[in-house]
């Protein structure tokens, strides 16, 4: 296995761990009930998301 392959595997591992970790955090938040519905502001969430710049494609 050459160095490029090892680097590629490490990089994919890094990406996969972030994606998996992030979705697990999402599921954990939903299951634990730590988010109170009365604190949720839908319009603020939309504003927050729309303020995020689109990623280069």
């Amino acid at each position: 296995m050459n160095q490029d392959t090892v680097k590629k595997i490490m990089w994919l591992y890094e990406v996969l761990s972030f994606f998996i970790g992030s979705i697990m955090t999402l599921v954990g938040k939903l299951k634990s009930g730590e988010i109170k519905p009365e604190d949720v502001n839908s319009r603020a969430i939309i504003a927050q998301l729309e303020a995020l710049p689109d990623l280069p494609e």
């Binding site: 999402l26 939903l30 988010i35 519905p37 998301l49 995020l52």
Partner: peptide, 28 residues
Amino acid sequence: AKSLPGTITIENAQRTEQALGDWVTSLN
């Protein structure tokens, strides 16, 4: 996640919305 009651009641839909919003912000 599909098995969670994410969209059954408005309260759960709001909780799901907040969690999704935080998730996307973190992804971005």
